[in-house]
Computed example of a mutant assay.
Amino acid sequence: MLITELMAPLLGDWQGTEQQAASPWALASGARAALRFKHEAGGSVVVQDYRQVRDDAMEFYGHGVFLAQGEEVWWWFFDSYGEPPVPAVGGWVDGELALVKTTVRGTAVHRFRPTWDRLDYRITLGAPDQGEVAPFLAGTYSRVSGH
């Protein structure tokens, strides 16, 4: 299946608010965020632009690249922290795109749940030395424009 077909529910521009838990990288905070998902390279990939402005005025930027391998979705996310991206892998189940990424810092599960006019995005984290998974980010966004 083409990535543009798999990612069609996400395509477009979104804006909303987020709540982020404390982490080794930042204190807990609310934030405003904007996301854009669009197809590129003749429809062979979907790219994502992300900008977060936290309540303390700190900014975080990211650029994602999604690729389909059959029904499986691969996602590389480059961000303003500058670490080399490790791919997250997953797929769509019951209207939700779930992607799992494991690094030396632990396992992150990213869940995108779009409807026509709303996008819910959740990240849970599990530390490598702990079996517990904890909520890290909860965002709710409204569609600004479709694709």
Rank of each mutant, 00 (worst) to 15 (best):
Val100Cys: 08
Gly91Glu: 08
Pro85Lys: 05
Ser80Ile: 06
Val89Pro: 04
Ala34Arg: 15
Gln20Glu: 07
Leu35Thr: 00
Trp92Glu: 08
Ala34His: 13
Val45Gln: 11
Asp94Glu: 14
Arg36Ala: 05
Leu35Gly: 07
Ala57Thr: 06
Glu96Leu: 05
Trp76Asp: 06
Glu18Tyr: 03
Phe78Gly: 07
Trp92Ala: 01
Val73Lys: 07
Trp75Leu: 08
Val104Met: 13
Pro85Phe: 01
Gly43Ala: 08
Gly95Arg: 02
Val86His: 03
Ala22Cys: 12
Val109Thr: 13
Trp25Ile: 04
Glu59Arg: 10
Phe37Cys: 09
Gly82His: 08
His63Asp: 09
Val65Gly: 05
Pro85Gln: 09
Asp49Arg: 12
Ala31Gly: 02
Gly30Arg: 14
Ala34Val: 14
Ala34Ile: 10
Tyr61Gln: 14
Gly106Met: 02
Ser23Tyr: 09
Trp25Gly: 07
Ala22Ile: 11
Lys38Asn: 11
Phe112Met: 02
Ile123Pro: 03
Arg51Glu: 13
Phe60Ile: 13
Arg54Phe: 08
Arg51Trp: 09
Gly42His: 00
His63Tyr: 11
Asp94Thr: 09
Gln69Glu: 03
His63Gln: 11
Met58Asn: 14
Pro24Ser: 09
Thr115Asp: 05
Tyr121Lys: 01
Val73Phe: 00
Pro84Ile: 06
Gly43Arg: 05
Trp76Tyr: 15
Val86Glu: 10
Thr102Glu: 15
Leu99Glu: 05
Ala26Asp: 04
Arg122Ile: 07
Asp117Ala: 11
Asp55Lys: 01
Lys101Arg: 15
Trp92Arg: 08
Val93Gly: 09
Val46Arg: 02
Val46His: 03
Ser80Phe: 07
Glu83Thr: 04
Asp49Trp: 10
Tyr50His: 10
Leu99Thr: 06
Asp94Cys: 01
Asp117Val: 02
Gly90Pro: 02
